[in-house]
């Protein structure tokens, strides 16, 4: 059951990611990115990260992607034209990226110790519920959490300053 779910949603994620790269219209890319995020949320759930799965859906697929689509609509973004680069240069990138995946695959296979597989039944009661994540967030990681609030405040101020209309 776990393997079927993994393969289904992993292939959906990869297909959506390829679609993100290949589509020329930004709206199609944004919808593909939502597909990636939703399937990743399912995979987080399979890994026992319930809180992160919910946050992925609410924060990423909800809030951030709505912001993206809002900006695409606002700017009336059109599909992009020809890049003006030769097709040889474009073709050269594909083997380089494939080689990069190959190197990562080699490192994973060579250095990852032999472990048991991931399964919903075999996670031994390890579930990243909101209470478990929150307990650690507010004790061990309290300082980074508080610094995050300053970061968000600065981000809000920056967004307002950048996007405001000039008042003369």
């Amino acid at each position: 059951m776990d393997a079927i779910l993994f393969i289904a949603f992993a292939s959906f994620a990869i297909a959506s990611a390829i679609s993100l790269v290949v589509q020329t219209h930004p709206i199609s890319s944004a919808l593909s990115l939502i597909g990636v995020m939703v399937s990743l949320a399912v995979l987080y759930f399979l890994l026992g990260a319930e809180f992160i799965a919910a946050a992925q859906l609410v924060v990423y697929a909800g809030a951030i992607m709505v912001l993206f689509i809002f900006v695409i609509m606002l700017l009336n973004a059109d599909s992009e034209g020809p890049t003006g680069r030769s097709w040889r240069v474009n073709l050269l990138g594909i083997p380089l990226l494939a080689a990069f995946v190959g190197i990562i695959a080699f490192v994973i296979q060579a250095f990852l110790p032999k472990t048991e597989g991931v399964s919903l039944a075999g996670r031994d009661g390890f579930v990243g519920t909101a209470s478990l994540v929150g307990a650690k967030l507010f004790t061990v990681y309290l300082l980074p959490f508080e610094v995050t609030s300053v970061l968000i405040l600065i981000a809000i101020l920056g967004a307002i300053v950048l996007a405001r209309k000039e008042i003369d």
Binding site: M1, D2, F6, L47, A105
Partner: peptide, 28 residues
């Protein structure tokens, strides 16, 4: 069918990351 090797998840992560790099470099 009841379990998935851990490396599959890491491979998926690597593939998605490289596709992100490809989009970053190719799109205008």
């Amino acid at each position: 069918f009841n379990s998935v090797p851990l490396s599959w998840y890491l491979m998926l992560s690597a593939i998605l990351f490289v596709l992100g790099i490809a989009g970053f470099l190719y799109r205008r």
